[in-house]
Amino acid sequence: MLTLDLFVNAIVAGILLGGFLAAVSLGISIVFGYLDIVNIAHPAFVVLGSYAVYILNSTFGIDPLLAGIAMAAPFYLLGILIYRFYYAFFERHGAESLRGLVFFFGILFLVEVGLNITYGVDYRMVNAFYLGKSIEIGLVGIPYRLLIPFVAGVAMIFIVYLYLSKTFYGMAIQGVAQDSLAARLMGADPIKIKSVAFGMGMATASVAGALLIMISPIEPSMGREYIGRVFAIAVLGGMGSVVGTLVAAVLLGIAESLTSTFYSPSMAPAVSFGILLLVLAIRPSGIFGR
């Protein structure tokens, strides 16, 4: 039963990959879904997060996951800064979303080139005592370097979900998505709420960066491979739906994992694009769309 063995392993790996992909896509879902800002540079910021974690890990020996969580605070502030800037130069003037898109594309490029100049194109990785180990459950062996990103990714989704649905600010963010006026009636300044939401999106990039570098070594242009994936997930999950993001990510993870196992790993990036195009052509509001 070699094929069954392979199949089960591929499914499990796909689910684990999905939890991680959800973490990478979460920031896009929040920022695109609630603020209608296409932060195409998000995957590049995830890679930036990976490098921050790499530095903390290689210089001070801090655990990668802890480092990612610690870096969430500065990333949050960076996010607020970027949003304020974006607001001042683009959003305030209205109807300039295409220029805004080019702006974020330029940022993506600058982050990549900046990392490239500073650290070169060598692959970097982190060390932690558990990364080489795995646990065996029946047919499948689950390596910790996949299990921990999965658990952390799902936990982060859960926390963000609770935040958005239970706290005042979270609900205000959802209000902004539907109608700035409604948010203002709640007595909240929409610019401030949007800053918080953008900051939160950026904070998730730092944690996702930690997960990325646990799974595999990284290099500066790695973010590109994730652009198709994260937008496929965000669109498929129905923008702004946090739970939808997780479900879509797991589906994509399984699809990619099956492709890698039974066809060829180098074809995996094409899967997300195929799914993205299919969704755009058939149901642009996403499968779990509002």
């Binding site: 074809m267 694009f273 195929g274």
Partner: peptide, 26 residues
């Protein structure tokens, strides 16, 4: 496929597409 939608979807599709064309050629 994409120009019936909001402009950004076209842009995202083109970016993802270039990765896929490269993947297919590889």
């Amino acid at each position: 496929l994409t120009l019936r939608l909001k402009g950004v979807y076209f842009s995202i599709a083109t970016l993802a597409m270039s990765i896929v064309i490269a993947t297919l050629i590889i």
